[in-house]
Design a protein around this nucleic acid. Structure first.
Lengths: 154, 154
DNA sequence: GATATATAATTAGAAAAGCTAAATATTAGA
DNA sequence: TCTAATATTTAGCTTTTCTAATTATATATC
């Protein structure tokens, strides 16, 4: 059923950037956490994967290692992340959230969720349930593909 | 039903950036069209709204007028868009796609849709139908809010 | 065991894309 | 008519990203 999948793809292609923009705007307008979307994603990943290496995070966020290195530098300076040389492989850098990092992450998450929740309040409970289902399906469709979602494409 | 809306928001906040990254990667890997996501959105909007003004497009894409002005300059130089002073209101600039613009837009659209379609093929027809419904609901929730989605947030 | 190759992270430098503030041109209103 | 508002552009800056090259460490080969 190619047509159906195509229609679905078209919808996704139109709506996802729209929602993404709202997320970015919201994060920008929050003066307290002051995290960009990639920074937020990096912290969120570290929240879920204590002690991940720089390249692990880079791959997840979709940045090149040099860009991630620069970002991490900023996060370290702001006392959100701790950078340690891995004892087992001294080329690797092991990253963990500081207490402050955890708290900032939590607050950024709360703030953005609150904003999205406000928007979603305009919809019916049924529509929100549909969205939850759809997000879970999309996550399955997009989360696995290793090569395609690294962002390091050229 | 705050909890429900919150859960929905969390899902959106996790999944939307994931899908967005896939879209960006795909567009980047397409050497032919070489359009950024905002450029693509601008062209797509012009495809649907012949003769829209610069600020119309800026608002839709979520950029400030100066940024859009710069982007349009690039699109004009690359012969994708024609810029004309509106006869009715000579302050306004009227934008239309060139034949080349239409063709580039079409090809970028095809490529990205094909890529998304491929990913979505892993899902069941029911799941895809759910996604279509969810996208339509999200569009309503996020497209209408005038102040919040202009990207002009501060 | 020495040397060559590969890998992880960083540094350096440049490019892209966005913003704010201010300038310009035009229209609408008092 | 004169003032205020609107649409776009210009100018300058900041942030974020990239590529290329460097450094340090680990692995593999001879």
């Amino acid at each position: 059923m190619q047509t159906m999948a195509d229609e679905c793809a078209c919808e996704v292609l139109e709506v996802v950037p729209l929602v993404m923009r709202a997320i970015r705007s919201e994060m920008r307008s929050h003066r307290t956490p002051e995290l960009s979307v990639p920074q937020f994603r990096a912290l969120a990943f570290l929240g879920r994967h204590e002690g991940a290496s720089l390249s692990d995070v880079a791959e997840h966020v979709g940045l090149t290692p040099p860009s991630m290195s620069k970002m991490v530098e900023g996060l370290v300076v702001r006392d959100l992340v701790v950078r340690q040389v891995s004892p087992s492989d001294r080329r690797r850098v092991t990253l963990t959230l500081t207490a402050r990092g955890k708290s900032i992450l939590e607050s950024a998450h709360q703030g953005t969720v609150a904003h999205l929740t406000e928007k979603l309040a305009a919809l019916s409970p049924e529509e929100r349930a549909t969205i939850v289902q759809a997000m879970q399906a999309l996550r399955r469709a997009f989360a696995s593909a290793k090569e395609a979602n690294t962002g390091i494409v050229r």
